[in-house]
Design a protein around this nucleic acid. Structure first.
Lengths: 220, 220, 220, 220
DNA sequence: TATGAATGAGGATTCATTCAT
DNA sequence: AATGAATGAATCCTCATTCAT
């Protein structure tokens, strides 16, 4: 996802203007601006000064909302992660076959990946986080992996998915999805919805169990 | 690709040893060590001191072989890129259907992605490169995209591949492949060859043109 | 004087409580808390936020009572200094020999040194004060020196003290006394009174003129 | 010890001059300059830039010799501490009565206190050190206390010192000595030797056991 | 070719202080 | 009288890079 061309986030600190929005709103604005800049320039090249400038405030003001630059980074990741986990929870709670659930999560995940916070999940470097945060991050990644594998496993069990190597299948699907975070451009000719719709079919089509009648066609 | 557990690169500057290897060999050793460290810690957290230490030399010595840290980064990327382009050239020269060529490139690309220099292609941040190098890099990425799309297009033309959205198909395949650079661990239970073999089938299976019985729609 | 174990100063801003005490009382509370913190952590490590927190108020509220952090520092010192000067005045006004006066001031000074404001006199760094305040401080220190020397001189004159090097004698006594400010712990096994009583004898014993019988040996 | 008037330390980095002295010599020069500045301005007000400037080098150059500002502070303290402990070791090894040993250590300690590194022991703030260093420092202080008390105890045991409160006696003596670190001025009219000689007598005179003629009560 | 030493540039962070509310 | 928010100034520290040897 190349965000360079994006129109700048509106700042709640618009100069010479009402500066009275709620604290949480400002916090969020910081995050939106920061994630943008981190994606554009990379975490290390992006400076807090840069973030502050885009917000029409000064660098130390950021410290009213975050304890450190890393804190901001981690929050960006967290937001993306939370969005994904919410969808996983929803999907878990869904009725239906494993294949159906997989299709569902693929579509929603694709949509998330086309957002800045979603891209955080794959564009930021885990080794830029402190040990405790890194642990949380890795645990989150594992949970996502596990969820995808779970749907596939369920699908195989319930007969909706052709038996296959679960691990590699999950890797292939997640790879295709995560890659969105690298190539998606908000100003491109594909909308997140289009991508979501397409991928939810494309990435699961090969997995569906084919009718056991006479002949079976090539699976994936 | 987590490279932390990898056995350290042997150093041509091993202390108390003959130090008279060819210049190019040393240059390569620097690159091998650097790419390793960059992957482990990220480009910015990795320091030239760290690279030098692993090589039993001192930081300024590196400047005998490279003009700057970025130069090293770019070279790492270049090696990966070259490997891919070599395979693309071979594939281009191959006889056979588009599907066959796609299968071929997928397999070899997967193998490359499971190497440190291959992972460079997707783990390093383009915005850490200077303008000229960035241009080269982006051009390289485009060539890879184009190659993949080309094989798909050829496959559709020659009837080996079911008609589909070329761009999204290529993105999905490349995503699955590039993701290898993030999850592959040299000490894991999958060898690069196994991955290559599996993916060359897995990622292309859904594309093959199905027998013309009546009508089929399933792409991907 | 380690003050870490001291029970926290009661705050006139106790939350959910009457907040209507007199201004001076609050001012004093700030000083008591500040001096405590300054002694615990050192003037520079202690922050106004820290002071405010212990008082259940916010940092800017402190500025209702003091113009600056240095102002607070200077006031702490001033209180200690005033206490000493009061005792000096009393002692000056006392009837009796130089030795007697010296004993008196040593005892009271020891008691003061075992208090937080007394310790301020020797634990804070003069160079943390602005020029005008520094001058006042140094003048104060000189007045104390002069007072001690005066008593010794008077004692020598009135025959209560054996002739000796006045300056070094004063330094030795003041050193022993000031050191109290560094080692005294409110929760230790020595009360300020015990220290005062002991030191008033200990530090002056060697000075007393010995009976002129035949020969006298050098005292201290 | 006010060092403001002191002639500046000669710098091994004299500009436009031979810059080829041994590493250790430079390290020492940094320490000499730093301790000077720390004493003049206080640890926090003194900046590494200030230290570097006096040495005709730049700030980062200091990091060739020390890991951090605190590291420098701790080294300064260590040098002073080592000097004292060396003298304590010598004194321990000395033959003679407890009183004699006490006199000896008082004299040498006084001399050390009149040096910059000696003054470090009492002018720097323990709470400016990191936890590990602070522990070392406090342990050092305790060893000094213990040594002084040991000599007094020995003196009482061997009859050279009149029985007395060992702890308070030691505090009084150490206080007088440590205070030197605050008032001594290299350009004053007292040399370290004079102070040492005077204090070695002055601070121990009152302790000597008086001839058992009839009965004596005099404490210290 | 290699190194020890030094530097310049830059960034995160802290904190006293101010100001509008 | 009190506060939340913001700021400006300052400092430590890191590191790629250079240079004399």
């Amino acid at each position: 996802m190349d965000t360079r061309a994006i129109s700048p986030e509106p700042s709640p600190w618009l100069p010479f203007e009402s500066r009275r929005r709620a604290r949480d709103e400002k916090r969020e604005a910081v995050l939106r601006t920061a994630v943008q800049l981190f994606l554009e320039q990379g975490y290390h090249r992006a400076t807090l000064n840069g973030v502050a400038e885009r917000l029409n405030i000064t660098k130390p003001a950021l410290y009213n909302y975050f304890r450190s630059k890393e804190d901001i980074l981690f929050e960006c990741w967290s937001i993306g992660q939370e969005r994904v986990e919410d969808r996983i929870s929803e999907t878990d709670a869904m009725p239906g076959s494993g294949l159906l659930k997989l299709r569902n999560i693929v579509g929603t995940y694709a949509g998330i990946m086309a957002s800045a916070f979603g891209a955080s999940l794959v564009r930021f470097n885990v080794s830029d986080l402190s040990e405790p945060n890194r642990k949380v991050t890795l645990a989150g990644k594992r949970r996502i992996d596990r969820a995808f594998r779970g749907y596939i496993r369920q699908g195989i069990a319930d007969g909706s998915i052709e038996p296959c190597d679960i691990k590699l299948t999950a890797f292939a699907i997640l790879g295709a999805l995560n890659w969105i975070g690298h190539w998606y451009k908000p100003d491109g000719d594909l909308t997140p919805d289009q991508i979501a719709e397409d991928f939810s079919v494309r990435l699961t089509a090969g997995l569906a169990k084919r009718p056991q009648k006479k002949k079976a066609r090539k699976p994936a």
